[in-house]
Design a protein around this nucleic acid. Structure first.
Lengths: 206, 206, 206, 206
DNA sequence: TATGAATGAGTCTTCATTCAT
DNA sequence: TATGAATGAAGACTCATTCAT
């Protein structure tokens, strides 16, 4: 719900597309199809059909197919970054901060933006190089938040490993949950967050 | 080194292709290109050029492009399974066994078969459904080895989480190393193995 | 002339394609090329060139090459059937009815639809099996008209042979005319019709 | 049986290939496959497989695929011509002569050489133009036998039509039997011969 | 003579993109 | 802005033919 608040803000400020607009609908459809079938196996016609328009009309909203993939990823990048900032600002202890890192990423992978988040990771190579660079620049702030939080955790002695290494191991563990975690299974998202947190931080506090 | 021994055995027994043969060379090239550019963006001509033949000749060795992707994945599946069996048979303590699980997977992701292993994970959806099923059948044994080892670890009290959940988290952490770990960086593979092991197992023994 | 009337009706009712539309033009070209060079030796590019479009555009009108062959044949099937119904309805004596059978078929083989009719006979094996079945179903009515007319002729004693056998012999004789009969030669179509009729029916009445 | 006698003579004299030799076996297989699948859809590999050799070996026996088709047709041409000569030489009355024309052709269409005969008619356009001319030259004698016999029949008043026209109509009726006549059906070949003869000749004599 | 891997031109088909309406 | 026919480059795959062994 707070997430929704944030998303509304981002829409209103024009940072991400309103899913009620044609452009927004297209991006939602693209995220879904790119996840299901992969970018290359999704045709522009598929995309158009999914939103009930004809293929030619897509190019009134996006210069080309590549730009659609970019937009899908870019909006996730922006939203993840903003959401993490909010989350971290509410966390007081270092423990809570690390939990915020993990929880935020899990939210994106299993929440409303799951498709786009998945696409960002698994269709990376389908993106043209120049767009890849733009995305990487966009993610810089996000990674710095992770980095500095992990550094802090290291200084406070709650993690037992090089912060950089741990960060990457956690990223991997989290992203991979998209392949096996079912929100209707035994584990709640909150419990899953705790499990991953327990990998990162000595068991004193979970 | 022992790995090489095993691979030779597998080649001799016909389970995987000899990289000296045309078929084997094709598979090596395919793994590399599929990793670099993705399956869809790799053309049959690319593949042929890489091994110095013409595109038509590829179809003397494989029925179609799909079969090449399958073969790349399938040989990894076989080799990973065999290698893990050997590794586990040499491990005495539960600690060593879990380390074997991790070390084996890291070996495949960063060793000679890194390309093919990467392809198996990241080009999964490019594989036709019937081949996906074959691969999944082929991996069943491998996953059982993980599962039973993790179960044992749980019974012996060295892991603090549902074995199934931990298994998946470790898989994710390990696979993701393909994106960031450089063998010529600060961390040796052995050290990386220890780092991951330390996530899994209480710090009494590493 | 009446034939033209009928064809217009069929076009208007959507049963066969208007030769003014792209689809219709393609079908006319296909019939011609398939007759001249055979289905297999006619490339999609040949076809496109003939109607002045590019090869890719063909697939806006037909799913694949096979469907083009089917459409060529199917439109002949429909038109032959309709034309025969009209002809028979105007025939009073049994003699006239048998003449109608023959004349109708000769019209198709030597009239405007000669190419398509030829293709239907001589490219039959090039058609995929499922399409063959559809065509055969479509021809059932036509053959029944022949059959029942021949049966009637037999009952009335004007033919001296098993109706089934005679029907087939006449079909063969008629179809083969596509190889030798020239409308600008010694024989008019009407005379040719009489010749064939004289094979079928005792010379009392022609 | 007499037919077999003749074929042996032709083999011995080198006019047609011995089906025991590789070349002969190839021609038998080619006739069969060309009939079943059509020339274009029959691959050289299919052919090789059918006779138990490998594709490359075919070119020790024939310069190219085209030559195989030519050879199939050419041997039929030769055999039909020789067989007709023999048959005609045994016929005394004009009636018997016309029957010989018909019977001979039916023999080839439904006898041992049925495949090759079928191919000669239905794969004509698949043959290169220069070979077509050779075949047509080879058939000239055969057609002259038909022509002169028909002319004679006309002079004797047993046929009621231009000999040329009747000849073609009979050819068509006869060839078409390949599509419907079954030797295990109601009609024997001899009866079928009579039916066709009755089309040609006034019913005084069958 | 037989082999069979390799050739390379040629086939059908796909699809992102354009553009006149 | 939407349409959808047309584009044309590119793709996977086929196959008659060659040739070193």
């Amino acid at each position: 719900m707070e997430e929704n608040q944030l998303i509304k803000q981002l829409i209103d400020s024009g940072k991400i597309s309103d899913p009620e607009t044609p452009r927004g609908r297209l991006l939602v459809a693209a995220a879904q199809l790119f996840k299901e079938k992969g970018y290359n196996r999704t045709t522009v016609r598929d995309l158009a059909a999914q939103v009930g328009i004809l293929s030619g009309s897509i190019f009134h909203h996006f210069k080309n197919k590549d730009e659609i993939l970019f937009a899908v990823m870019n909006e996730v990048v922006i939203a993840m970054d903003e959401a993490l900032k909010v989350s971290l600002s509410k966390a007081n202890t270092i423990n809570d901060k690390v939990r915020a890192l993990i929880a935020n990423e899990l939210d994106f992978i299993h929440g409303k933006t799951s498709n786009a988040t998945y696409v960002m990771v698994y269709e990376w190579r389908a993106l043209s190089e120049s767009y890849q660079q733009q995305i990487m620049q966009g993610r810089a702030g996000y990674f710095e938040l992770w980095q500095s939080t992990m550094d802090e955790a290291r200084r406070e002695g709650v993690i037992a490993m090089e912060p950089d290494c741990l960060r990457q191991l956690l990223h991997g563990a989290i992203i991979w949950t998209s392949h096996w975690y079912k929100s209707d299974g035994k584990l709640t998202i909150r419990q899953l967050t705790n499990r991953i947190l327990s990998l990162a931080i000595k068991p004193s506090s979970n």
